[in-house]
Design a protein around this nucleic acid. Sequence first.
DNA 1: TAAAACTTTGCATAAATTTGCAATGATGAT
DNA 2: ATCATCATTGCAAATTTATGCAAAGTTTTA
Lengths: 249, 249
Amino acid sequence: MIKEERQKLIIEKLNRDQKINLLELSQLLNVSYDSIRRDVIELEDKGLLKKVHGGAVANSYLSFKTTQGYGMDNQEVLHLTRKAQKLFENHQTILMDGGTTNFHIAEQFPKNLELTVITNSLPLATVLNDHPKVETILLGGTYHKRYQITIGHEVMRQLDHFRVDLYLMGFNGLHPQTGVTLRHYEESVLKQKMAQSANKVAVCAIAEKLHNIETYKVCDIQEIDILVTSFKPTDVSLQDFRKHGIELL
Amino acid sequence: MIKEERQKLIIEKLNRDQKINLLELSQLLNVSYDSIRRDVIELEDKGLLKKVHGGAVANSYLSFKTTQGYGMDNQEVLHLTRKAQKLFENHQTILMDGGTTNFHIAEQFPKNLELTVITNSLPLATVLNDHPKVETILLGGTYHKRYQITIGHEVMRQLDHFRVDLYLMGFNGLHPQTGVTLRHYEESVLKQKMAQSANKVAVCAIAEKLHNIETYKVCDIQEIDILVTSFKPTDVSLQDFRKHGIELL
DNA sequence: TAAAACTTTGCATAAATTTGCAATGATGAT
DNA sequence: ATCATCATTGCAAATTTATGCAAAGTTTTA
């Protein structure tokens, strides 16, 4: 029995049972425990399974990885992104960074909207494939696999060459006193620079992010020009923001 | 028993059993172990099987279906991209542009390969999400929706900052006299610049592209250092390329 | 046709891979 | 906390692979 044969059997059994036990398997295939163990290590290196204590499990995570977190099952988000469409006019240049909210907004652009979109988000650029009248410019830099955006010095440098009409900023927390906050340091620095490259800065906030505070500060609330929420502009929960002269949508 | 006869029998047995054992086979056919081994090496070079320790397996045997989007149904491409893996060593910096061939090569990087990959292709950057040890740098610029790459002045400018070990160039035509040619003008200019940023330039050519000529010229054949094809390096169809001192793989 | 050049084949040897075993360390369940 | 189970490591044996070499066979060329 050659190695490849064993490994194929392992994968097949794993797909049937979702989990395997190393000892059991070694008896079944009539080889030493060590060989099975080493097979499982190799297969894990190839990303075909996940090794756990006493055995291995199928890694089903691969299947829903591509759409990770980008599903639109949320009514609030849908409503919010619809509302956000009012921000855009033909022939504008818009700067948009990463995050699911911006992704969904771009996804819902009207098909005849003529925009130039500058972004550091790969999913965003990709979703704009379906919008022939949108010209897309991608900011280059170090690629961050988890967020699927580019970051770092090179992105900052490219921002010097642009002055955009509107920057649609993604964020994690928005608070009347603390301002805009983020979980990721590198991004928070980048967003500061982005805000400086734009005539206007807009944010779209689901209720969960309103009045939330995260670790890294991006900017004060005064620097935000437009706030899109799913509340009515007159809602009491927004009164602290109204004070700062922010346009509410 | 002549070589061709043996090899035919090997392939037939392989198609029946999906795997063969070299020792067993040598006894069955009554020839030395070495002859069988050398037959198998030849057959692997032709892409008809995959050699493994102690035997060989059918090509389909190992494909646990990791492919997505850019379907990989072509045996020649599979073989070619496998062969191309020999180009890479740990801790190198590689420049790769767009095209399906480069995509498939990246897709098949060993999971433990430590590389820095610089690219202007969005699908390529995305596929590298699954390779935790590969650092990806994305070149920014105007996004071309059809090819899903960035192009234009800004990409060119960023290239000034890099000097890479190897540039893996995608292309449409490769001809011993005409050189490397392309269908898309903007890209052809970009590729010239890319070639200048690299210590070595490699191309991977399926048979269809060999001796093919397209509209826009990228560079002369002399500027290519390594050519990966599914032919043996000694094959007659490659003799015109050999003359130019190109390393054949 | 004969000589030269090349290919194929089997063998010997050295290098590399795979495998199983035993000792030691780590982990999980009770 | 203890014990049983599992994981890791180093090692040695067995198997397989790579390489050079020489003999035999095949093709090319003059």
